[in-house]
């Protein structure tokens, strides 16, 4: 088969892959919950920046915080999620999420290095708010199990993104870039807290 004859079917295949599926409903028709769960943390900017900041701070602090923070976060987040599922009220959830971005971003921006247990406790405390926000929406999801799996994976992927960005601290210029990134995270959190975003 020549290059020309291969090109047409390959182009067609590529275009097919790029085409958006025709959905019967406005949101993710046919979704078993997994896709909704996967997208939920990604679509909320306040969630995204805070979770990236967890990975960023972990990478900034180095081992063992590098793995401890991304391990503590989903565990405590699930506890917060369980509270949300069970209908246990938690005050100021949205403010807590915004505050998590401010504090974690500031930690990176100011290059603060508290003891490991303080860092874990701080990340864990904020994880409760993120989990509660997800948990309250969980029982209404099309497939709660798929939704849970999706959002746990998305959370892990966001931490991983933060850790990867945090690896830039190996270079002097990268260290500055990471601290600027922390400042941006804190600014985003502040924008949410004060209703500017």
């Amino acid at each position: 088969m020549t290059r020309t004859t291969l090109a047409a079917p390959l182009c067609a295949l590529a275009l097919t892959a790029l085409a958006a599926p025709a959905l019967a409903h406005s949101e993710l028709a046919g979704d078993s919950g997994f896709v909704s769960g996967l997208l939920h943390p990604v679509l909320g900017l306040d969630h995204v920046v805070a979770m990236v900041a967890v990975g960023l701070w972990g990478a900034f602090l180095g081992a063992p915080a590098l793995w401890l923070l991304p391990v503590v976060f989903p565990l405590v987040m699930a506890m917060g999620g369980a509270l949300g599922v069970l209908g246990v009220p938690l005050p100021a959830v949205e403010a807590g999420i915004a505050a998590s971005a401010i504090v974690l971003g500031a930690m990176v921006a100011l290059a603060l290095r508290p003891p490991l247990w303080v860092a874990a406790a701080l990340v864990g405390a904020f994880a409760v708010f993120h989990g509660h926000a997800h948990g309250t929406e969980l029982p209404e999801a099309a497939g709660p199990i798929g939704y849970s799996l999706g959002f746990v994976i998305a959370t892990g992927a966001l931490h991983l993104a933060g850790i990867t960005l945090g690896m830039l601290t190996r270079w002097p210029g990268g260290r500055v870039a990471v601290r600027v990134g922390g400042g941006l995270v804190a600014a985003t959190g502040a924008a949410f807290l004060f209703g500017l975003a």
Binding site: P74, L75, M77, A78, M79, G81, A82, L83, V85, L86, G135, L138, P139, P144, I145, S148, L149, V152
Partner: peptide
């Protein structure tokens, strides 16, 4: 563990 905890709550 996180997934099991959420399923337990559900």
């Amino acid at each position: 563990a996180a997934l099991a905890l959420l399923m337990l709550a559900l």
